[in-house]
Write a protein that binds this DNA or RNA. Structure first.
Length: 956
RNA sequence: GCGGAUAUGGUGUAAUUGGUAGCCACGUCAGACUUAGGAUCUGGUGCCGAAAGGCGUGGGGGUUCGAGUCCCUUUAUCCGCACCA
């Protein structure tokens, strides 16, 4: 009987759903395991064959863990709010709620066909008010918290009121937007609005006027991780810097914990490194320089205080506060002109012009505290306002940017680290001996740094300081399709909604388009107010809804809490998180921040949300090409095209052309060939066109389908090789325009979900990026058909109760061992290979004692076929209630081992010897072998190296 | 510029972690069978060579009895960060 996956797969999917096979709940008697996929944005394009890669891997793990005795939580949901969904809605002219619902339905249908073991009862959608109620709730909790640097955690902001009342903010060590100082008396004298401003300075969710990434085309601000090279990640629109009033999350307060927490996570080193870079910790010193003729001091940040003797000028960012008074009258106009010019430059232009040196002298001088020299103060936009203090001490001898600046303006360059030639280039050394350096002369750089830190602090010139690149996350978007920010303005004072007013539902509007001015769509909603006060009109960014969804899955329908204490303490954290690396600096930072905050306020059980994380690679597209000859409707098969291309001159060319029945080219004026050069540069002989990969099989074009594919090819002619049209191929991004999108639905229809699942795993290591290539899927499909046939040896279903041979047992147990180890190591490609080897070795074995454990072992990979065979073998329950087979070492014992014997490092012969004998016995047996005599030719071995169970080496 | 990763047949890959390089597949070649299927089965298939044999894991060098694996160097590709002081 044939393996009829078309009938088997839908039947079991329905049956699992009916039985609730994959429903899970809190069960204190069993150890928990939480396996999570990054939930998808339900985009309009539907799934392509690359999307399920990670889902398949996590599904295999889930089934495997479940069959190993764990209570496995494995949910799925949809990240439905945010820019992509909204842009798609705008493009198609429909309401985002409508398109999102339709897209979710489509995704769900596609996912269901693949036989995943999700507990769909726990499905969450971020755009569901019952869900985003808890996103808004978390926002309010952040709004009502500040970050205490002494106890290193979030605390209720209400705690600050009595402190301010008694001592002002003196001695308060808390994360804030701007440093401020006030006394208790000043606090008491403040108006309500002024006090609100002070508190806002400390809140973890706060509103402030800051420089933001404004994207006019999208009509919204963007977070740093949503901007790449000065363009928006979505759509690639230009982004400019603008000062705007925005909501932000004080992520920077958690920088040190986000950094430190990485160490214990089972994440790839590269991913941790990306996050470390993003957090960008640098330890240095904050130093104050006297300004000549002023009481003010100029504050800089440096990681290299050891180079202080090489400081020959200072540079301020054009946005620096001091520029209102610092420049001398003579330089005023020039400075103002520079400031105005740099303001106009977009972020993109600044990035593009990194090598151009610009700047203006302010006319003012600072004093080098160690040399006493007066050094000029410049402004330049190579100094960033947002990092450090927006001012630097320039060391042209040892910093390439300072060097370029000094060269351009003719400023002195003093080397202070031995080595290099500062006349030619800066010497950006991190080690070496200090020279020209007063009290640190002769010290090594590393010692000098420490010495200078101490010296600077002792002399009261500054103090050690840690700086982070990580910025607070801008949390408002001037868009429609997101969670409304649960804040209203009472007498103009931002006030959180009471929890009882949550969820603050997103109103249904007909006009949800963004505006170029930055006015959010919600501002156009009549009566967008709370108790008569206007509500905030911006919405939350895409990452808001995905920041704590893993907690919600634990208890998805709870209306009284994000997650119940019971569920949280049982499920705790995600043991295995599978998803793409593209979330490294977005979701995975925000989520960790969000979770740490919830941990601080006692709402999450663990400090870190994702214990182990695996990044599946991207599946690229494999495009096929056809070669159109001379712009005619004639298509030439790949190798003939290559042969024609290889011709070196007209004569050779025409010989080849005649051979294939093509008209010879008589002169260069024939056809579109315009010159000999262009002709032999292969510019004009063939044009290569993308062809739909779905009408190509093993790179052979289905010519009839091609003619029907597009009307202009209806009368196409082909020059075939061996009766076939062979296409060229290349690796590109999977996209509609390349005609290389492979839809999983089609693979499921042709081969079945089990084949697709196993093939995606077989394709290569999970974490590697690789092209999808439908060629080769036959190998896996063949395996499943052969496996099926083992049970139908006589035509009808039947397994024998005959005892297996030792060899059969050995094969089985070898496979069990290998497959189990591979799953634990996330090496699915090799485990699929192990199954194939197993089948090759078993031949035609129909014995129950072999086939039953093998079927169970295969079940996580190919759930449908194994469930079907399991039931045909007469079992009542589901195969997924069975335990994974253990391997029995007894069956794996090898009695003999073939030792490769090398003489002088070169393999000469093999000697079969029992395992477990002593080294001396091996030596004796090898030397006694007649082959050894042949190679030794009577010489005595100088040395013998014996690695028991591996190899024998003889050195003569 | 800084940081990280990768490089193995025609293709995807594997290698007991320093021990016979190329497992398992795809493709391909030869054969069997056949109601001609995109079926099934058997065998070959890294390169050069008639063979013996030689060469072979991006290139060069090193450590070692032995290197795809370790070290140095270099090239290419991919990714992350980037006037971050």
């Amino acid at each position: 009987m044939e393996y009829n996956f078309k009938e088997i797969e839908p039947r079991w999917q329905k049956e699992w759903s009916r039985r609730g096979t994959y429903r899970v709940g809190v069960d204190p008697d069993r150890p928990k395991y939480y396996i999570l996929d990054m939930f998808p944005y339900p985009s309009g394009a539907g799934l392509h064959v690359g999307h399920p890669l990670g889902y398949i891997a996590s599904d295999i793990c889930t089934r495997y863990k479940r069959m190993s005795g764990f209570n496995v939580l494995h949910p799925m949901g949809f990240d439905a709010f945010g820019l992509p969904a909204e842009q798609y809605a705008i493009q198609t002219g429909q309401h985002p709620a409508t398109t999102t619902a339709a897209n979710i339905a489509r995704y769900r249908e596609q996912l269901d066909k693949l036989g995943f073991s999700y507990d769909w009862d726990r499905c969450v959608e971020t755009c569901d008010p019952a869900y985003y109620k808890w996103t808004q709730w978390a926002f309010i909790r952040m709004f009502e918290s500040y970050y205490c640097r002494d106890c290193n955690q979030a605390r209720p902001i209400a705690e600050l009121l009595p402190v301010f009342e008694q001592q002002g903010n003196e001695g308060l060590n808390a994360a804030c937007t701007v440093e401020m100082g006030f006394t208790a008396a000043e606090w008491r004298a403040m108006s309500e609005a002024e006090r609100a401003d002070v508190l806002m300075n400390y809140r973890l969710a706060y509103r402030a006027s800051t420089m933001v990434n404004w994207c006019e085309a999208l009509g919204t601000v963007l977070a740093n991780d949503e901007v790449k090279d000065g363009l928006s990640e979505r759509g690639g629109h230009p982004v400019e810097q603008r000062r705007m009033m925005q909501w932000l999350l004080r992520v920077s307060a958690y920088a040190e914990r986000l950094l430190g927490g990485l160490d214990d996570l089972a994440w790839s080193e590269s991913l941790k490194e990306i996050q470390r870079n993003w957090i960008g910790k640098s330890t240095g010193a904050q130093m104050f320089f006297d300004i000549k003729g002023s009481d003010q001091k100029l504050e800089v940040f440096t990681t290299r205080p050891d180079t202080i003797y090489g400081v020959t000028f200072m540079v301020l960012a054009p946005e620096h506060d001091y520029l209102s008074w610092l420049p001398t009258a003579g330089q005023r106009d020039e400075v103002d002109a520079y400031i105005a010019a740099s303001k106009k430059r977009s972020e993109r232009e600044r990035v593009a012009d990194t090598r151009k040196v610009t700047g203006v002298f302010t006319g003012a001088y600072a004093v080098n505290p160690f040399t006493g020299d007066e050094i000029p103060i410049y402004i330049s936009d190579y100094v960033l306002a947002g990092y450090g203090t927006g001012a630097i001490m320039a060391v042209p001898g040892h910093d390439s940017r300072d060097w370029a600046f000094a060269r351009h303006f003719g400023l002195p360059i003093v080397p202070v680290v031995e080595g290099g030639n500062v006349e030619e280039a800066s010497y950006d050394a991190k080690e070496g001996r200090m020279i020209n350096s007063g009290i640190i002369d002769g010290l090594d750089v590393k010692e000098a740094i420490v010495r200078m830190f101490d010296e600077v602090e002792a002399r009261g010139l500054g103090r050690r300081k840690v700086n982070y690149r990580l910025r607070d996350a801008i949390f408002s978007r001037q868009r429609y399709w997101g969670e409304p920010i649960p804040v209203y303005y009472k007498d103009g004072i931002p006030t959180a909604l009471p929890f009882s007013a949550l969820p603050l539902e997103l109103p249904k509007v007909s006009d949800f388009s963004p505006s170029r001015s930055g006015e959010p769509p919600l501002a156009r909603v009549a009566d967008w107010s709370y108790e008569g006060w206007p509500l905030e009109t911006s919405t939350m960014p895409g990452f808001a809804g995905s920041s704590a969804y893993y907690l919600r899955y634990m208890d998805p329908t709870n209306d009284g809490a994000l997650v119940s204490r019971e569920a949280d303490e049982y499920w705790r954290d995600v043991d295995l998180y599978v998803g793409g690396i593209e979330h490294a600096t977005g979701h995975l930072i925000y989520s960790r921040f969000w979770n740490k905050f919830l941990f601080d306020i006692g709402e999450a059980a663990e400090q870190e949300p994702f214990r182990k994380l695996v990044n599946q690679g991207m599946i690229q597209g494999r495009s096929n090409f056809v070669y159109r000859y001379l712009g005619l409707n004639v298509f030439v098969s790949l190798h003939i095209k290559e042969e024609i291309d290889a011709a070196g001159n007209f004569e050779e060319l025409n010989v080849v052309l005649r051979k294939y029945g093509l008209d010879p080219i008589r002169s260069i004026s024939d056809g579109p060939i315009t010159s000999v050069t262009s002709f032999f540069n292969r510019n004009s002989l063939f044009s290569s066109l993308h062809v739909d990969v779905n009408i190509v099989r093993n790179d052979v074009l289905d010519t009839d389908a091609f003619k029907k594919w597009r009307p202009e090819f209806a009368d196409a002619e082909f020059v075939l090789e061996d009766g076939k049209y062979v296409c060229g191929w290349g690796i590109e991004k999977m996209s509609k325009s390349m005609y290389n999108v492979v839809n999983p639905d089609r693979i499921v229809a042709d081969y079945g979900a089990d084949t697709l699942r196993m093939y995606e795993m077989f394709l290569g290591p999970l974490e590697a990026s690789k092209p999808w290539d439908t060629n080769g899927i036959d190998g896996v499909h063949k395996f499943l058909r052969r496996f099926w046939r083992l049970f139908f040896a006589s035509g009808d279903f039947g397994v024998s109760d005959e005892s297996p041979t030792a060899a059969e047992f050995k094969t089985l147990h070898k496979t069990i061992k290998k497959v189990r180890e591979d799953i634990e190591n996330f090496s699915f490609n090799t485990s699929v290979a192990a199954f194939m080897i197993c089948l090759n070795e078993l031949g035609l074995c129909d014995k129950r004692q072999i086939l039953e454990p093998l079927t169970i072992l295969l079940a996580p990979f190919a759930p449908h076929i194994t469930e079907e065979l399991w039931s045909r073998m007469g079992h009542e329950g589901s195969i997924f209630d069975e335990r994974m087979p253990e391997y029995a070492p007894a069956h794996l014992v090898e009695s003999e081992f073939e030792y490769p014997v090398s003489v002088n490092g070169k393999l000469r012969f093999k000697k079969s010897l029992p395992l477990g004998i002593s080294v001396a016995e091996i030596e004796a047996a090898v030397l006694a072998d007649e082959n050894a005599g042949r190679w030794l030719e009577g010489r005595e071995p100088k040395k013998m190296i014996v690695v028991p169970g591996k190899i024998v080496n003889i050195v003569i």
